[in-house]
């Protein structure tokens, strides 16, 4: 086989992927840059405005508010996600007859669509008739004539959004922990046990340290995924009350498609892109240092 033919073959094999990749990933990157420099509506490209829209973003309190909301969601959901995922993995990893049952139950919500989980959440947390308030009244946690307004109070709304998100997506992270747990060789535990270690010591000195690499992976994936949060918030609170839960993607969407201002939306997307890029780079550096090698 000669090199020329192999080169030709490689070209043909790469071509379909690259056509789609260029059209739908690389081209939008450039297009976004162009759009962010123009006044651009759903109907047409209007006039060139240079960096004006970026300047406007820096002064736009709604942008900072939305960015903070997203960051707040990240802060609330990431640590709870990791702890819960690990907890569930430990439950599902116990040698019991219910092992597969637990795994299935914890993972099941992950396959449901965001619309379904959002509406189930929305209806469960309704005041007056919703399940959650009903159950609280039944348990006498909540007096009969009182209501908790889950979605019209900022703190409660965040609670609902984080709870629903955890319930929906923790399964995937649990599986990742589960496979990491199963990768820890039994011999390590046996050796430690022979040395007289207690269960608690086994957990702190063997299990947890072995899970460090996977935790770091989950952390990054979770950070990036949470920064992109949109659909469940859009469907449950629409960003309310008073835009206090409106994430950055929703603001981008509303500015572009509701207020007919694609140029500004594109500029905001670029700022978001930059933030996510920095997060990925930090993680890469961190991984390199931790493993002392090249990134995976």
């Amino acid at each position: 086989m000669n090199g020329k033919r192999e080169g030709m073959f490689a070209f043909l094999f790469l071509l379909p992927f690259f056509v789609a990749y260029v059209l739908f990933t690389l081209l939008p990157m450039l297009k976004g840059l162009q759009m962010s420099l123009y006044k651009w509506t759903l109907i047409a490209k209007l006039h060139f405005v240079g960096l004006d829209q970026y300047v406007q973003i820096m002064r736009d309190p709604e942008f900072w508010n939305a960015l903070w909301n997203t960051t707040y969601f990240v802060i609330l959901s990431t640590p709870t996600m990791i702890v819960l995922a690990l907890g569930l993995a430990l439950v599902a990893n116990r040698n019991s007859r219910l092992k597969t049952f637990y795994r299935s139950v914890f993972f099941l919500p992950s396959v449901l669509s965001v619309t379904v989980i959002s509406y189930v959440g929305l209806f469960m947390f309704r005041p007056y008739t919703g399940l959650v308030n009903n159950v609280l009244k039944w348990l006498h946690v909540l007096p009969e004539n009182k209501e908790i307004f889950w979605l019209t109070d900022e703190t409660n709304a965040w609670l609902v959004l984080v709870a629903v998100t955890l319930w929906w997506t923790v399964g995937i992270n649990m599986i990742l922990y589960l496979s990491a747990l199963q990768d820890i060789p039994d011999s390590m535990y046996e050796a430690a046990r022979l040395d007289g270690a207690t269960d608690r010591q086994l957990f702190w000195y063997i299990t947890l340290p072995s899970l460090r690499p996977i935790t770091s992976t989950i952390l990054l994936l979770q950070l990036i995924a949470s920064y992109k949060v949109f659909a469940q918030i859009w469907l449950i609170t629409k960003g309310g009350p008073l835009n206090q839960t409106r994430p950055i993607i929703q603001y981008i969407y509303e500015e572009g498609f509701k207020n007919n201002n694609l140029g500004y939306a594109a500029a905001m997307s670029y700022v978001l892109f930059l933030i996510l890029l920095i997060l990925s780079l930090i993680h890469m550096k961190w991984n390199q240092r931790a493993e002392g090698g090249t990134p995976a």
């Binding site: 081209l27 939008p28 990157m29 981008i252 594109a266 997307s269 892109f273």
Partner: peptide
């Protein structure tokens, strides 16, 4: 290709819309 891992789809959704519209 690796660089593509760094491009989150959500951040290019607005221009993607324009590109798909143009196509």
């Amino acid at each position: 290709v690796l660089a593509g891992l760094m491009v989150p789809g959500e951040a290019t959704i607005i221009p993607l819309y324009q590109v798909v519209k143009d196509l």
